[in-house]
Design a protein around this nucleic acid. Sequence first.
DNA 1: ACTTAGCACTTGGGCATGTTGAGTGCTAAA
DNA 2: TTTAGCACTCAACATGCCCAAGTGCTAAGT
Lengths: 337, 337
Amino acid sequence: MSEPRQLEVLRAIVEDYVHSREPVGSKALVDRHHLGVSSATIRNDMAALEEEGLIAAPHTSAGRIPTDKGYRMFVDRISAVKPLSAAERRAIHTFLDQADDLDDVLDRTVRLLSQLTNQVAVVQYPQLTSAAVRHIELVLLAPRQVLVVMIVTTGKVEQRMVTLPEETTEDALQHVRAAFLASTSGALLSRLPELLTTAVTSAPPQDRAVAAILGNALEQLAGIGREDRMVLAGTANLARSTGDFPLSIGPVLEALEEQVVMMRLLTEMEQDARGVSVRIGHENRYGGLTEASVVATGYGPDELAKIGVLGPTRMDYPTTIAAVRAVARYLSRILAG
Amino acid sequence: MSEPRQLEVLRAIVEDYVHSREPVGSKALVDRHHLGVSSATIRNDMAALEEEGLIAAPHTSAGRIPTDKGYRMFVDRISAVKPLSAAERRAIHTFLDQADDLDDVLDRTVRLLSQLTNQVAVVQYPQLTSAAVRHIELVLLAPRQVLVVMIVTTGKVEQRMVTLPEETTEDALQHVRAAFLASTSGALLSRLPELLTTAVTSAPPQDRAVAAILGNALEQLAGIGREDRMVLAGTANLARSTGDFPLSIGPVLEALEEQVVMMRLLTEMEQDARGVSVRIGHENRYGGLTEASVVATGYGPDELAKIGVLGPTRMDYPTTIAAVRAVARYLSRILAG
DNA sequence: ACTTAGCACTTGGGCATGTTGAGTGCTAAA
DNA sequence: TTTAGCACTCAACATGCCCAAGTGCTAAGT
């Protein structure tokens, strides 16, 4: 396996297969890539590669195609990340800079990524747990109805309507609000629970009941953010690559709609040294995705939320990895700014 | 065309074809449906129907399939809406009653509808223009930063951050807020522009500049709601019906992702007497959808926002229509409640 | 010890041909 | 107006054939 030429052959096979979609034979290899040896030698190398499970032959007399393990080897040890073109970089900037809303940012991001890669792009909503409280507002809509609004540093605004067990006054609400603001302003959402209990106990006794209820609502608000949601784009690209998914793309579409599945998948992925994680074919435990690969990376302040691309195992990994990384980096910058 | 038996034959053809996916011939018709005549007679009727462009034969010696025009006739004049089963009704209630958030309601609604119909379900965000202002809040985050929040009767909360050209005070903001509330509370969003200008002019002179800016923001808020967005579910169902879309489902997926297209399509649809609108095949001007049918209806207080289903022209119209109507009606009730 | 040329062998895909069965249109009789 | 009967058409399937691509192996060459 340490044979350098065999690795070279594997690379050639992967590259050819990725862009021709057809099993590649020894003859075709020698004249497309000028390796200095004859087809017979290549055949021997191929036999060795097949022995190791890196490539396989669909039929006795067809060329070879890479196996999942072969792609894995290619991604880990052979390929070099291919930098994006200047035009592509420019596209990222101009397209994403126009966004205002967080929703809009994410929407534009996935669309962009799916266009760059010609595949399905996915992004998780950023995890708010690491975001901080920027402001809290309590609005009295009716004597017993309060709108609780929390603004977090990411620019996201969370709100919820709360119905109180008994009537309260604008004044009382202002006191509670002041207490909340004093103790939580600028604090991480993850620290919210403890800070809120302190705030509640420090509120004037007669307001404490109301404060407790509203504090509770705020805690939930910190949790209910949309971290469990994701945005999709480019599903139409799946249809284009018919034939890559033998049994049709049905199962893949199903998996994509099952947010729970996708969220788990993305969250589980662990990044390698290059800051990107790749799941190839059967490495995705979920049944519908055994013919698919996922390339993902973290983004945002703590890189906890994931953004990625899903496509056929036969995908152009170097380019895809580059695109995912570039978009993730720019997205992080936007969210921070 | 006034021949009643010919209509009966057309109905039989549509029904058989919908559930067998295969061209239906005269012989098959006579024994599956007990029309009191022989196959030869049916053949004559079929010839007449073909003459009128209601059915067509894929090949010389194959059975007939309905044309778009045939489906149209079927939907308009022949079919009776098929009521939902008790279980289905129950499913609607139990599934939708669990929702809290508007986002959640819509999400659950489309999922449900796509499951009921085994097709792609689409829902537009409700049009706020007919909703009314419930509350307006202005929050001073920094001397020059104001968070503008508007709560509408649908329960939706819209907000936006505004940066002022010069600093303002909490007091000034309270005045403006009071003026806004006084003149717009309970008013329809569509009347917001005129009401706001009145409010601005009635504000204390020194606050007028700020009021103008914030009023402007509110106006936009009334517009930017997510009315131009929609929620999708069930795209995986498209894959199941391979063969219904001859050139593969690619173009359909593309159309679905192009929200602009879908929004236009839904908005254009005009409801018939039964309160449902159906677009069949080529009636959808958009290129990618000439093999698809859309069944949609309005929902919400003014029935302006649309909810619907998209599937192959060869779909079970009676059932689909029933499902769309039932879900829309229940959705309206939830939003009103 | 590798590499290479040559050769026998396998096999899916393309093509031409034959067969079958469902379905039609038409005509003539009821 | 309906029906039976019949000749005709044509997609789908099956069969048989050949070809090209590709392999594995062996023996010779470096």
